[in-house]
């Protein structure tokens, strides 16, 4: 059986990414287009939120991906720290800008939804605040990668930053449960039927979640391939400079 570790080989990773990327791109576009069209045009207004409930199709999937992106970066960082496969470090680096955009979408749509629901664009609520801190961690993570020239040292330091930031990723997910206060409601999806989102919104929401998850996977594959190329460019340029000096 083929091991997962074969993808630590950059050539194997890129070949596989080339093959599956178009399929994931088509599938993600289909899921997003169907879910958003269904949700925006063919679901009724909710009793409490009225038609602002339609923001759920962007807010919930992007918030989920903002947290999951950081957890994916955590897994990739741990693989780098333990096994020193540089493709995993590149994957973590590639995921960060996607995580930033997901966090930004979650915060912007949350603010827009908060206005009619709570009467304010922003509140220092546990979930909102932990999301803002997560956003700052993302920015710091990208900045740290850019600030260090040596890729291996940058991967080591950003991996440690990622471990620390994971506390806030988990806090963002469970902030409502931990503090049980603030404006933000609990999770929209639950196995408890009473707490789960109403049936009429459920399927388009699941489609949007699948769409956002697939967009994330497609972008991480594409950007990891780019990072692998960039690293190869840097090492070839160093070799060229070495040859010129010799």
């Amino acid at each position: 059986m083929n091991s997962l570790w074969q993808y630590a080989n950059p050539r194997k990773f890129n070949d596989t990414a080339d093959k599956i990327l178009p399929w994931i791109a088509v599938l993600s576009t289909t899921c997003l287009f169907t879910g958003l069209t269904w949700g925006a045009f063919f679901t009724p207004p909710a009793e409490r939120f009225q038609d602002s409930v339609k923001i759920i199709y962007l807010h919930v999937p992007s918030a989920m991906m903002a947290i999951n992106a950081w957890l994916m970066m955590l897994a990739a960082s741990l693989i780098w720290l333990v096994r020193r496969h540089y493709v995993s470090a590149m994957a973590a680096r590639a995921a960060a800008p996607v995580g930033i955009v997901m966090t930004l979408i979650a915060m912007v749509t949350g603010a827009i939804w908060g206005q009619p629901t709570w009467g304010t664009w922003w509140a220092w609520d546990p979930r909102l605040t932990s999301f803002l801190i997560l956003f700052m961690f993302y920015i710091g993570y990208v900045a740290l990668w850019s600030a260090i020239e040596n890729d291996d040292i940058a991967a080591d330091l950003t991996s440690i930053l990622c471990l620390v930031g994971s506390v806030f990723a988990v806090l963002s997910r469970y902030a409502v449960n931990f503090w049980n206060q603030g404006l933000h409601q609990g999770a929209s999806l639950s196995l408890d039927r009473e707490k789960n989102v109403a049936d009429v919104y459920y399927t388009p929401l699941l489609l949007c979640i699948a769409g956002f998850a697939l967009v994330f996977i497609a972008l991480v594959l594409l950007r990891t391939r780019t990072e692998i190329h960039a690293r190869r460019i840097r090492s070839l340029q160093l070799r060229e400079r070495g040859d010129d000096n010799a």
């Binding site: 925006a40 009225q50 602002s52 992007s62 996607v98 749509t109 827009i112």
Partner: peptide, 27 residues
Amino acid sequence: SGKYADLVLLSYTVSLLLLFALVAVSL
């Protein structure tokens, strides 16, 4: 047609623009 249609439209526009920009820059 809803009471908050402008806010809903704003959130869809901003989100899709951010996503498209990210895809375009990545490509």
